[in-house]
């Protein structure tokens, strides 16, 4: 019961791990992605991606700029031009 989450920038693969949930600031509103999410693609507003490693835990926030999110059968991939923190 885990979501595979990858955060990729042009320079490197920032993060690749199994997490509980990720909340992504989509262009048309924030959305949370859990395991088994339907295939989905969205552009991202500049803002914080919240990574929940465990259910009910404190999220880790990662600032992204110029991003794009893709949910497929193999998990969530966030492509971002810039990542801070």
């Amino acid at each position: 019961m885990a979501l595979h989450f990858e955060l990729v920038t042009p320079a490197k693969l920032v993060l690749s791990e199994d997490v509980h949930m990720v909340v992504v600031p989509g262009e048309e509103g924030e959305f949370g992605v859990l395991e088994g999410h339907a295939p989905f693609m969205s552009t991202i507003r500049d803002g914080a991606v919240q990574v929940y490693r465990t259910a009910g835990g404190q999220p880790e926030e990662i600032m992204v700029r110029g991003g794009f999110a893709e949910v497929g059968t193999n998990g969530l991939t966030v492509l971002a031009e810039h990542v801070e923190g």
Binding site: E28, P39, M41, S42, T43, E70, G72, T73
Partner: peptide
């Protein structure tokens, strides 16, 4: 595609993305 042929939802639409 990574979704294995399933219907992918787009937000906003395909052209905007």
């Amino acid at each position: 595609s990574a979704s294995g042929g399933a219907v992918v939802e787009y937000e906003p639409d395909e052209e905007a993305i």
